[in-house]
């Protein structure tokens, strides 16, 4: 079942002269788990705020579920944007009751979702007495209350303890496996890597990469080489066609190859030019480095 959940067409948002988001387009398909990755201030929350109707876009448009308006479909979406916002004087239960009334759910499973996030003991306690972690859990519970098809989570593990972080990630994976669509915004790549199938990388309001997580983040490896005569080695590297780029790092040269070429081919090419390598080491690039390189 290939179905478009959300179509975004060249969205832009300006705050005065600051471009928080420029010409952002993407297509969210049913059943996938998307990660929107980017440093703080890259436009993640702005994008989600626009498609959820709380921020007015300066340009561009979006459509939910193949063209219908967002308002009629909000019960199909569970969303957590930035901080958990609830009425401080109401209990956890009553706060969820308000959310259920807004989503017009007839028999909300409030106890069930509170149980799910581990707040059942505090269901009658006022929201203002909660710790940040508990507030975050309540916010997650409120996104699940309508059993939505699409889950939008903006920094969902913010403020949680390690156990809570693990719980939430398990939860997201479990929901994803139920065939639901998840959009997860985060600046923690390891979070995105653990739960997402697709990724969109934003920087200063611009999309710099998007695609399956494998394609985007599993980048090329770099190969570290050295020879007795480093100068003549670097001279001949210029004439080898399979090399994308290289640079000198201390007494070694770091080389990245074009897609599909291997370290063995490089070794052979250098040998054919009459130089014998004294050092060859394939460095597997970590996601973190790959991400940092992308957003540079």
């Amino acid at each position: 079942m290939e179905q478009t959940i959300l179509q975004i067409n060249s969205l832009s948002k300006n705050y005065g002269s600051v471009k928080a988001l420029s010409d952002f387009s993407c297509k969210i398909e049913a059943g996938k788990t998307y990660g929107i990755l980017g440093p703080n201030g890259s436009g993640k929350t702005t994008t989600l705020g626009i498609v959820l109707g709380v921020i007015n876009a300066s340009e561009g448009n979006y459509s939910w579920f193949g063209g219908s308006t967002l308002n009629k479909n909000k019960h199909r979406i569970g969303a957590l944007l930035e901080t958990p916002n609830f009425y401080p004087y109401l209990s956890a239960y009553k706060n969820l009751d308000v959310v259920a009334a807004i989503k017009q759910i007839t028999n909300p499973k409030i106890d069930e979702v509170l149980d799910f996030v581990g707040l059942e003991k505090w269901k009658n306690a006022a929201f203002k007495s909660f710790s940040l972690g508990m507030k975050q859990r309540l916010a997650i519970a409120s996104t699940l209350i309508a059993d939505p098809e699409v889950l939008i989570l903006d920094e969902p593990t913010n403020g949680l303890d390690p156990e809570g972080i693990a719980d939430v990630r398990k939860l997201i994976t479990a929901i994803g496996q139920k065939g639901k669509t998840i959009i997860l915004a985060s600046h923690l790549i390891d979070e995105v890597e653990k739960v997402c199938t697709d990724v969109i990388i934003l920087k200063s309001g611009k999309t710099i990469e998007s695609g399956s997580i494998y394609e985007v983040l599993k980048g090329d490896d770099t190969i570290e080489i050295a020879a007795d005569d480093l100068n003549s080695l670097s001279n001949i590297l210029k004439s080898i066609s399979i090399i994308k780029s290289f640079k000198k790092v201390n007494d070694k040269i770091s080389v990245s190859l074009n897609k599909g070429n291997t370290a063995a081919e490089l070794n052979k090419a250098i040998f054919e030019k009459g130089i014998v390598l004294s050092h060859l080491f394939v460095k597997k690039k970590k996601l973190e480095e790959q991400f940092l390189e992308l957003i540079k």
Partner: peptide, 18 residues
């Protein structure tokens, strides 16, 4: 209160139109 608690924002996210 709705502005202070940012609940007006949450109400829109949860499904009310403006």
């Amino acid at each position: 209160n709705e502005y202070t608690f940012k609940t007006i924002r949450q109400n829109v996210i949860d499904g009310l139109s403006k």
